[in-house]
Nucleic acid binder design. Structure first.
Ligand SMILES: Nc1ncnc2c1ncn2[C@@H]1O[C@H](COP(=O)(O)OP(=O)(O)OP(=O)(O)O)[C@@H](O)[C@H]1O
Length: 813
DNA sequence: TCCATACTACTTTTT
DNA sequence: GTAGTATGGA
């Protein structure tokens, strides 16, 4: 389709207004799936093709690399053939680009970028050094530090700051700058400072860049908003670009925990006034039942502006909510569902979404068991693996010989007798001579060491002989691997299977560097670095390190076989799939147990669920389980409170827990396999034939919002499926109301075979003491068992019956 | 200094 | 269940 055709037929009136908007500032506020991203892409194409804007004068900022990738693809379609492409990427990657374009303005010429692991490692070191372990965990400190840093730049928050954090902050910053490292926050800060302090820099920037577009504005941080202001306004706060266009949706704000500020949407309107505000209410992505479900859910949030999002894609029987007995069954059910889908859909049109990464493991296991190809987005990333990070440390040292953190990582890996004691010497020495690079320091130290250590140091330094930042990355990496005998080290230190996977990973790493080199050879204009100076466009080690710093995924050839995508709800933002599976709809998982304290947090969890639902185009499967493995223990679960907010008329509930696995497959085949879109199909389930058309009829509420009514007892992880009276047809799958899920197991289930130690008191927990649980109310402890040093299992008699739970879940009364 | 063993804490979410 | 740390003996 030509772009003209697209403008005429591929956009509705409102979208077109935003795309063709001539006022300098435009803001699109619109619900999920209403084509906001489409507006951004179309506007970029419009500016280039209709307004003859130089592509390199356009900057499009997205929230994630994945979103950037998709947008690039869409734009490239409109601009087929053109080698000059606009910048599309995250705020962070754009800031990195600016810093690299202006090496003379950066505090250190060759800096390393710390990822979050490096950050936590450094903070942990500082905490341990100052004996603060007892007071704060490294993860907590990292999080608070980032918040502190972000606030520092924009407004003064000194008095509210945890003094501990300020202390750590000082040391963290100085360690970082001695090592010539920047963390993710620094990338934004450095550029922010450039804009604030360097008029020349700002002038050059505004001469070159004329249009800025920002996606997902509701999740931009204060710093990012500030940055946008500095980029677009002159010193008199007058608009100084040709256009700025942002799009966003308050209902999809899910990143407040990392500093996202929804009110940026309002600030945008005042800071860039006059702003043309465009609202879009039609959803093009989802079929009606799915959209209505999402609308009903989000209505429960009080802190929002009501919207009237509608879809004109009628459909029936599109949402099923499955109640599983355990997380294993949940995973198995997902796998069987995907199997049933695979007959009519491509696997990459299906996504499994979850709240936290650890949930992916069980799902993975099930998918492997059924040989379903899948791909995990996020989670433990390729470049976060230990073996890769070790080698990266060597590479980083080549590019940045001041990188203390990398040196500490590399020096004794593979182990060469240079342990913590030597590390301390090294740190002391370096502290005295901060302007020497690591080779000079090590040469210095070599003189007063024993022979064994001398040799070890010699060996270590030899690895770097002849390696330079301007060489090809693959050459450097292969040299490092060979000179350190890295494969040998892996085989010596890990058992066969583990060693082999690690060796494989290293080989893949080498492949990735080779691929990176060839990519440069093939396409002259490497889109991301399109506007970088020529010498920065050669595939050097240095450039490779910058390229991967903000990328977690490894560079892969082309899209290979279609695979089911597994990711967190956060990572799914901005994406869409034919079929979406959301697993783990239990209180404590979604909403997360850490977000139950305040209403704000709870509403963000609800938005997260909303984002998940609105990723689906055609089918939506929701799952929860009555038991879940966490920390190697089976913990009872209650269905998510959000499930009770979904109208039953839109959501078909199934008691999967009562089905045999074969029946589960039949269930899915009947739901999906028949091609419900085109014609009503005749079911051939069991002995009876039956139309599926009544799938969507209202049912009585099954599990009430007040979970107190539901009665649970401890039961084995895999109870035998219970025997049911056969029910005719598909209807038999529908969850019965008022039927307690585990009535059958209550008497049958063996009592936990842990010896009673109820007479004893453990950690202050005593039988007979009164406790309060958030949901189950008051109760009395009948049994105490040790779970760990600090945690205990309490068997508590509540009004609703006995429950066994971790002591951390109850309060003493 | 290295290794084996025991014991803890651990799970949000991302650039 | 596992990664990371603490301890103690070789
Ligand atoms: N005018 C239109 N006509 C037909 N399809 C459209 C139109 N606008 C958008 N779409 C389609 O609707 C879907 C959602 O669009 P898009 O991803 O741009 O929405 P969005 O507002 O960015 O969504 P979200 O906020 O949920 O990420 C896409 O598949 C897109 O192709």
């Amino acid at each position: 389709m030509s772009f003209d055709d697209f403008i005429n037929s591929g956009l509705n009136n409102f979208q077109r207004q935003a795309v063709e908007c001539d006022t300098p500032a435009a803001l699109v506020i619109a619900g999920a799936g209403s084509g906001k991203t489409r507006v951004i892409t179309a506007r970029i194409a419009y500016l280039i093709l209709k307004k003859y804007a130089d592509p390199t004068s356009i900057v499009a900022l997205t929230f994630t690399n994945k979103a950037a990738g998709e947008m690039k693809e869409r734009i490239a379609k409109f601009l087929s053939g053109s080698k000059r492409l606009p910048f599309v990427g995250t705020f962070h990657s754009y800031c990195l680009l600016l810093l690299r374009r202006n090496p003379s303005l950066v505090p250190f010429a060759n800096f390393s970028i710390m990822d979050s692991d490096d950050q936590v490692d450094l903070i942990k070191k500082i905490i341990n050094k100052n004996g603060l372990q007892k007071k704060i965990s490294a993860n907590q400190a990292t999080y608070q530090l980032s918040t502190y840093k972000n606030n520092l730049l924009v407004r003064n928050m000194e008095e509210f700051v945890n003094p501990l954090i300020r202390e750590i902050y000082q040391e963290y910053e100085s360690e970082k700058s001695e090592a010539h490292c920047l963390d993710f926050d620094d990338l934004l800060f450095q550029v922010l400072q450039l804009f604030r302090k360097n008029e020349e820099f700002k002038k050059t920037f505004q001469q070159k860049v004329r249009h800025i577009l920002v996606d997902e504005y509701q999740d931009t941080s204060h710093v990012q908003h500030e940055l946008l202001k500095l980029m677009s306004l002159d010193s008199e706060k007058k608009f100084n670009l040709d256009s700025v266009c942002a799009v966003g949706d308050e209902d999809q704000s899910i990143y407040s925990w990392r500093g996202a500020t929804v009110t940026n949407m309002l600030s945008f309107q005042s800071d860039f006034a006059p702003v043309k505000v465009v609202k879009i209410e039609q959803n093009y992505r989802s079929v009606k039942p799915i959209l209505e479900l999402a609308n009903e859910l989000i209505k429960n949030n009080r802190l929002r502006n009501p919207k009237n999002l509608w879809s004109d894609r009628p459909a029936k029987n599109r949402v099923v909510s499955a109640y599983c007995r355990s997380s294993e069954q949940e995973a198995d059910t997902i796998a069987r569902f995907i199997q049933a889908c695979a007959k009519s859909k491509k696997l990459d049109e299906i996504a499994v979404l979850y709240r936290t990464h650890f949930q992916s493991r069980q799902i993975e296991e099930a998918l492997m068991y059924y040989s379903i190809p899948y791909k995990i987005i996020g989670g433990l990333q390729f470049y976060e693996r230990k073996e890769i990070k070790d080698l990266l440390a060597y590479m980083r040292l080549v590019a940045n010989p001041f990188d203390k953190l990398s040196l500490m990582r590399a020096i004794n890996c593979p182990s060469r007798g240079l342990g913590p004691k030597f590390e301390q010497e090294l740190l002391d020495e370096w502290g005295k001579n901060p302007f020497l690079d690591f080779k000079q320091i090590l040469e210095l130290l070599k003189n007063d060491e024993t022979n064994v250590k001398k040799l070890a140091l010699e060996e270590f330094l030899n690895v770097f002989k002849g390696l330079e930042a301007k060489q090809f990355p693959a050459y450097c990496l292969e040299n490092i691997v060979n000179h350190t005998d890295y494969y040998g080290y892996l085989r010596r230190n890990f058992d066969d299977r583990e060693a082999e996977t690690k060796v494989e990973n290293v080989k893949e790493f080498i492949n990735a560097t080779l691929l990176y080199e060839s990519k440069y050879a093939v396409t002259e204009a490497f889109d991301n670095l399109e506007a970088v100076f020529e010498e920065q466009r050669t595939p050097t080690l240095e450039n490779f390190l910058y390229e991967i710093a903000l990328l977690q995924e490894k560079l892969e050839k082309t899209k290979d076989v279609a695979r089911v995508q597994l990711m967190t709800l956060h990572a799914a933002k901005g994406l869409e799939f034919n079929t979406v599976i959301i697993s783990g709809l239990n209180d404590g998982v979604l909403p997360s147990s850490k977000s139950l304290n305040t209403n704000d947090e709870l509403e963000e969890e609800r938005r997260l669920f909303y984002v998940g639902i609105t990723r689906a185009q055609e089918y939506l499967l929701l799952l929860n389980a009555y038991a879940r493995n966490s920390f190697g223990q089976i913990v009872e679960q209650v269905p998510s409170r959000f499930l009770s907010e979904l109208p039953t008329s839109l959501c078909y509930k199934v008691d999967v827990e009562k089905l045999h696995s074969v029946e589960v497959t039949m269930l899915w085949q009947e739901w999906i396999g028949g091609g419900l879109d085109t014609q009503p199909i005749v079911l051939t389930f069991g002995r009876s034939n039956r139309l599926l058309s009544n799938l969507n009829e209202p049912v009585e509420m099954v599990r009430q919002a007040n979970h107190e009514r539901v009665h649970y007892t401890a039961r084995p992880a895999h109870p035998e499926p219970c025997r049911r009276k056969p029910v005719e047809g598909f209807e038999r799958f529908r969850k019965k109301s008022n039927e307690y899920p585990h009535k059958e197991f209550e008497s049958a289930s063996p009592k936990p075979s842990v010896e009673s130690i109820s007479e004893r008191s453990y950690g202050g927990w005593k039988t007979g003491c009164a406790v309060r649980h958030d949901k189950f109310g008051q109760g009395v402890v009948i049994k105490v068992e040790k779970a760990s040093e600090k945690d205990f299992y309490l068997t508590v008699a509540f009004k609703i019956g006995q429950k066994k739970l971790l002591s951390s879940f109850v309060k003493r009364v």
